[in-house]
Design a protein around this nucleic acid. Structure first.
Lengths: 158, 158
DNA sequence: GCACATCGTCTGCGCGAGCGTACGATTAGC
DNA sequence: GCTAATCGTACGCTCGCGCAGACGATGTGC
């Protein structure tokens, strides 16, 4: 028997998280449009700002994208001088990927706009709630899904 | 203040929410598979359990789906005796949609499995954090995006 | 040298979702 | 009665994504 009164007798977690994510990407897409960036571009810039990648495949894996799908993104970013796709002296098969100063600046601008938007959203809740929320969210999003996903469901196998 | 962060140093909200949502639907899809339900089926059952719909279009709008896309879902649910698509005596164009007892039972089972899974996830954090997190999440997911989304690039209307 | 793996690129397939259209049945306005 | 609007249904179109295969260029093990 499912509980009735407890704190989570409301909507499902997913029923809140997924639409929230949808709304976020929709809103932030518009912000990125103003910077002439796509979502994938922004994700790539974010990853490269964190640390340069020594190979496109590694970058793709890092951001959870398909290797073939980021080619166009990289082409565009390179053509606009935001990243450099330099040859790797150690392994001439791969390309070293890193941000140019212009790329770092563009990313900073985009991230500032995104952050401003998100901060405005988060400012609608008390400060303590906000930090708790962010901490909990960070923990959940960094969870070992690969184990939890398959495990726990001890459904009645009839 | 070292790096513990102004919330400026962490990842973007969307960068945590969206992957979390993805992981949730992936995990819950497997749970629903065990109940022979698809995500859309579960969403439909959830909506109908809340209150019967007097028209398919209304149901589709309520769950944010396309009218044409839920037809197959309703067909399946009806064929399995989980819902009834009765004629509306008041307006013979539309169909009254409601759960059968079996449908209510199946939904209860599915929801219990989903809830158990989510509770296991949430149990990894302190109780106070959990309630705060859920409260904040509920507030965010119930936000007036239609205004915030558009006004995003403008000013906070202070 | 040789076989094999890796990297980047291109191409195509399949899936799911949204969007628009058309049509029969029905209702509402006049 | 006529027309316009609505509902459910089917159909086709387009997009974006993941996946797989192929190829040339390159690196690695023997």
């Amino acid at each position: 028997m499912p509980d009735c009164g407890d704190d989570d007798s409301r909507r499902d977690l997913a029923a809140m998280v997924v639409p929230l994510g949808r709304a976020l990407i929709a809103a932030e897409q518009r912000i990125l449009d103003a910077q002439q960036l796509s979502m994938w571009s922004y994700v790539v810039l974010t990853a490269l700002a964190d640390e340069p990648a020594r190979t496109q495949a590694a970058l793709a894996a890092a951001i959870g994208a398909d290797k073939t799908r980021i080619i166009a993104v990289l082409d565009d970013l390179q053509a606009r001088g935001l990243i450099v796709r330099g040859p790797d002296p150690a392994d001439r098969r791969g390309h070293l990927l890193s941000l140019t100063p212009a790329g770092r600046r563009a990313f900073g601008r985009a991230r500032a706009a995104i952050r401003a938007y998100e901060r405005r959203l988060l400012d609608t809740m008390p400060v303590t709630d906000r930090s708790t929320f962010l901490r909990a969210l960070a923990r959940l999003s960094a969870m070992p899904w690969h184990e939890l996903t398959g495990a726990g469901s001890e459904e009645p196998t009839r």
